[in-house]
Write a protein that binds this DNA or RNA. Structure first.
Length: 545
RNA sequence: GGUCUGUUGGUGAAGCGGUUAACACGCCGCCCUCUCAAGGCGGUAUACACGGGUCCAAACCCCGUACAGACUACCA
């Protein structure tokens, strides 16, 4: 029996591979267009590493005028989670990362669900068997385990290769007999590699990678009839026209297998780009960010924290290309989509996932946004996580926008908002609903203030319709005639002859109005509060004496 | 055990055979200022994991060692 006859016996009702090669036409894209994909397993939710991968893949496709598609790798039924795919798609789309084609969207290269591609994989297994490049293997898992034990004790390389690959030399006739006797089997690739031969592969990110040829007869079709990752990857990315496989660097070590598989199948290999993992410092050790151990690994965590999606994308961009941050700082008015990512500007080792840095980026991001946009987003966030505040916001729309506008649209705006909840945390005192809720808003004030001066000031001056300059001039005059130094040099020369400086008097006003020693521009705050409310606060404050 | 990869000040990170080893954050001082932030000026740091080698010359190339990570499944 020839290999070809054997292949026909094994797969009598399968299309010839030329059928699929014709069906899935070469993509008609412009020169240099990159086709990337996001190919998750349906395990429910994604973590930052996955998001990073999807984000970067999308960027490369977009910036080159290519295609970014979604393929679902559901070949492991044991790991499958109910509605797992939906959860993943939701997570990715919540970051505005959408697909040009793929599962749930459609496209000419489907099905995009691997479990629906059985016929296709079978056709290619048949093709390999006919050429003597794949074979059925009857070894049981206990036999494999035994081999492994022997290999461990004799310190040989572990795996199914060379003399350990006992089924690779079975003739088609013996194999057929075993099948007819009812022995269960799987399919393995028949490696032609020599482990002692080394090659260099140029990874788009990692650069030159030296690797030994693969000589393992890896499983390509499992007993459930579904392909392994390795095989499905080769078939799908070939047929779907993927030009660049961007994936985590845990795959680097199976690169020799994939390279050989493409070779056996006669496919052109895609360009691989292996992404460095996101790392975390856990005490003294640095390790990969873990979905199980680290809450910050979860993508949903950031939605709860109220960090804007765009800020996270900004952060991922800085992680993605080492020169991104510099560019963004120099072009604050530009968009991420205006930046061209380069593979050789990506981190080769791991990247520390730094929450403090994320927060900082988020603050910079907020500082350049328009007040009404922030209002809308904070309201939106609050509706989900803080109904009380959402209600307050809805009743104080213009007021809140004015508040958010203080020191905003200027050359160097304030950076005091890092996330949506910061608005309440930083400015609660600007809302009477929240201010009056406190039994005594001033209870934490420890300092002994000159209450009488403040009362005198409030009773005589107030705000009226002054401009900021007029107002501050009056504050200065008043402070000067009530024992405060009106310039720093005088005070420094002889501090004991003053009650303090003008800044100390301003602090007094500030504490009365806001209960805090730090706030945005005092004049704007006072104006927003208005004389009536200030008067009430003054009375309350004066009781602290 | 095997294969592959990585290791530059407190942190991030340039550099790719000849540099005073950038830059950013941080930290300290001064200036400005109604607070904070921002900004300006100046300063700070015992930074190229360790040991050999090649070279006139090494953070950069080679070989070891240590440490760290990934993989070593009919999981992806």
């Amino acid at each position: 029996m020839t290999n070809e006859e054997f292949a026909n016996y094994l797969f009598p009702n399968v299309q010839d591979v030329s059928y699929y090669e014709n069906k899935y036409k070469k993509r008609n894209l412009k020169e240099g267009a990159i086709v990337t994909r996001y190919a998750p397993s349906p395990t429910g939710s994604i973590h930052m590493g996955n998001l990073f991968q999807a984000f970067i893949s999308k960027q490369y496709a977009r910036q080159s005028g290519g295609i970014f598609f979604l393929r679902v790798e559901d070949t492991d039924q044991k790991r499958e989670v109910e509605n797992g795919i939906e959860g993943i798609v939701k997570d990715v789309e919540s970051f505005g990362i959408n697909f040009d084609e793929g599962y749930g969207i459609g496209g000419e290269y489907g099905p995009y669900l691997q479990s629906e591609r059985g016929d296709i994989y079978a056709a290619y297994v048949k093709y390999l068997v006919a050429k003597g490049l794949a074979y059925p293997c009857f070894c049981s898992s206990s036999e494999i385990d035994e081999n492994r034990t022997i290999q461990e004790s004799t310190k040989e390389r572990i795996g199914y290769y060379g003399r350990w690959a006992t089924c690779r030399d079975l003739t088609p006739d013996t194999a057929k007999e075993k099948i007819e006797a009812g022995n269960p089997y799987i399919f393995r690739m028949k490696s032609r590699g020599d482990f002692n031969k080394k090659h260099v592969y140029h990874d788009a990110i990692k650069g030159d990678l030296e690797y030994p040829e693969n000589d393992m007869d890896n499983v390509i079709l499992k007993s459930d009839g579904l392909p392994t990752y390795h095989f499905a990857h080769a078939i799908d990315d070939h047929l779907m026209g993927t030009t660049h496989v961007i994936r985590g660097d845990e795959w680097v070590s199976s690169l020799p297998v994939h390279l050989e598989l493409f070779d056996l199948l006669g496919f052109k290999t895609p360009q691989y780009a292996h992404l460095a993992p996101l790392l975390k410092k856990d005490g003294d050790v640095v390790r990969k960010l873990s979905k199980r151990k680290d809450p910050e690994a979860s993508v949903r965590y950031y939605h709860e924290l109220g960090i804007p999606v765009d800020a996270i994308k900004l952060y991922l961009s800085t992680v993605g290309n080492t020169n991104f941050e510099e560019w963004y700082l120099a072009n604050p008015d530009k968009n991420i989509t205006d930046f061209t990512f380069q593979f050789d500007k990506m981190s080769v080792g791991g990247t520390m996932f730094d929450l403090a840095k994320l927060e900082n980026i988020s603050k910079v991001y907020f500082s350049v946004q328009k007040a009404d946009k922030i209002y809308d987003e904070v309201l939106n966030y609050s509706k989900q996580y803080d109904l009380e505040f959402a209600n307050i916001l809805e009743h104080n729309k213009d007021y809140t926008i004015s508040l958010l506008n203080i020191e905003r649209e200027i050359e160097r705006p304030r950076k005091d908002i890092g996330a949506y909840p910061s608005v309440r945390k930083e400015f609660w005192y600007m809302y009477d609903e929240l201010f009056n809720k406190e039994a005594n808003p001033y209870q934490d004030i420890a300092k002994n203030y000159q209450y009488d001066d403040l009362i005198t000031y409030m009773n005589t001056i107030y705000l009226s319709t002054d401009t900021e300059e007029e107002w501050f001039g009056k504050v200065k005059d008043f402070a000067g005639t009530h024992g405060y130094a009106i310039n720093r040099k005088d005070y420094k020369a002889d501090p004991s002859s003053f009650k303090g400086q003008v800044s100390d008097f301003c602090e007094l006003i500030r504490v009365m109005a806001t209960t805090k020693t730090i706030s945005p521009n005092l004049y704007d705050i006072l104006k927003l509060l208005g004389n009536d409310r200030l008067k009430k606060r003054l009375e309350l404050f004066a009781r602290q004496k």
